[in-house]
Amino acid sequence: MTQRLPTADRTAGRRPAPRTKGRDPEDRGVSGKKIAAYALLLLFAVLYLYPFFIQIAASFKDDPQAASSPLGLPNPVDLTAWKKIFGVGGGASVPITTWLGNSVLVTLVVTAARVFLDSLAGYALSRMHFRGRGFLFATVLAVMAVPGVALLIPKFLIVTQLGIFDTYSAMILPLLVDAAGVFIMKQFFDSIPVSIEEAARIDGAGPFRIFWSVILPMSKPALITLTILSFQGSWNEFSHFLVVTQSPEYRTLVTGLASLTSGELGSGTQFPLKMGAALLTTIPVALLFFAFQRHFVRGAGEGGVKG
């Protein structure tokens, strides 16, 4: 939400590049410290990444091999788990492609709706003068404090009362707007000078026109942030889908994986299959994360150089 804003104070903190250079000889003197720091970081990098390596490797093993040699590379490579996942060669025992379809559907709808509706509400809360605005914003702040785990029974109750239990509506509608997203957008719009809209207003543009053609195009950084958060949030969502649906046909990758893992779908440990399904669940968010990580680093870098 703020990666464009902090440039001023950030450069202040980062400016002493020449100083750093000046201290280099001193640093070279304490190379033991350097080695210790790298060793520590490498150790933690292994701790944080090795489980993902084990996960990938295990998905290419057969059950006995996953149990007998869990640590290393698959030898020989076995594609049974992946064939099962994509239903290749003799019927899928697990309808992972259905889950994938549901995940994609829900995530796309929720992300698109959140980006639009959160921005819309955030813009009104930031710019428009109307009675009750302060109250609305205070409510948004209060809603952000409400913990998701306390909402399971409430969500189940409303969904059954509305008669939409076990439908896509129940999965999607409650997620269409999120208070945190509204807050993020409002904070961002607060940082855009009002004078920018004045010109458009004098030209006779209406509020929606100004929002759509003037403000939104300027808000790319915040919109990207919101897109990432919404995508990741709805893709990884678990407890909400757990309480508002029941039928297997509404399972997403995450709820399907949970049912697979907690042993509701058949026998045996099937670790390669579970690791493959878990990997499939992880990949989209991972891609998004790595793609935008670079984007953000670049954006912040440009800001830094300029200062």
Partner: peptide, 24 residues
């Protein structure tokens, strides 16, 4: 590397930990 586990699905990671800490 350190931040990556935080962005992935909690269910997926719990599944991986079930495997890591299984008896074998």
């Amino acid at each position: 590397a350190f931040y990556f586990p935080a962005v992935t699905s909690g269910v997926a990671i719990a599944t991986v930990f079930l495997f890591l800490f299984s008896n074998t």
